[in-house]
Amino acid sequence: MEITSAAQLLELCEKQQKSIPQIVAEYEAFLAITTPDAVRERMAEILRVMREAVAGGIDDQGEYAHLVKGYGQKVYQAKEKGRLVGGDVFNTAILYALAVAQHNASLGRIVACPTAGSCGVVPGAVLPVAEELQSSDEEIIDALLVMAGVGIVSASQGPISGAEGGCQAECGVASAMAAGAIVYLLGGSGETVFEAASLALQSHLGLVCDPIASLVEVPCVSRNATSAVTAITAANMAIAGIPGVIPYDEVVVAMKNIGRAMPESLRETSIGGLAGTPTGKRLYREMRTKYSLDN
């Protein structure tokens, strides 16, 4: 059994008359020499940690983070006071994504998805939708298997690290994975899952990885929130019948090629982009001096 592209995954579903979550669970069971039920149990553990990270990031003030402190609390308070525009799902997505990404920056326990730097996108986008739809845990686990399926085909054909592909390979792929999961929760078809994934990744093409002072904080944490919202937007578009036009497999290859064309200074080296601005450089100098091992 092999899953290396969206086309292949959808063909397997068609041939065996099974859903994406069923096929992904069977594929993983085959790879790990275990049972589909054991795979689902592991996904249940992933869901538990995602929920804990949301709660943790809203509660904690980012004690161990350097720049992103109290982001979860700030959005929570503003939302409670009714100061934010937009629907509840969107604002909850912003809250959850920021909370998880801040929790990561502050040495909290998270699920790398696909990376630690983009860990807030999937819980940020998927959990608020699941809450709105009152999905059962079993349904959410199915959606997370769909999300993993999108991740598997992405990683099979392109990079999933900022060092190789820039932020499009981290937050972009995370957003595509989340969009696929949301379409599944909304009852969309396997084809629609990948239309949404295509739309989500398209909105991230060209996005560079330029973190200030080598931290996973600015702009990473706020980008987790915008990527989560983009995932919901892409899923809504796909459900409404807007096509991705370019198949997801081809968008991933385009993303890979764009990553290759990106100068190294914009691929997680903290040299160019925001890291190279006067303020970015000043913050780096200040922290490097403060924390030098040789002091």
């Binding site: 996904m43 553990e45 992933i46 940690v49 929790h103 990561n104 920056a105 502050s106 040495l107 909290g108 326990r109 998270i110 699920v111 790398a112 998805c113 696909p114 630690a116 730097g117 860990c119 997370l144 999300m147 993993a148 991740g151 598997i152 992405s154 990683a155 999933i160 994975m177 931290l215 996973v216 904080e217």
Partner: peptide
């Protein structure tokens, strides 16, 4: 692609 479960940030 979904994991590891880890303490952040990197």
């Amino acid at each position: 692609v979904v994991g590891p479960i880890m303490v952040g940030p990197s």
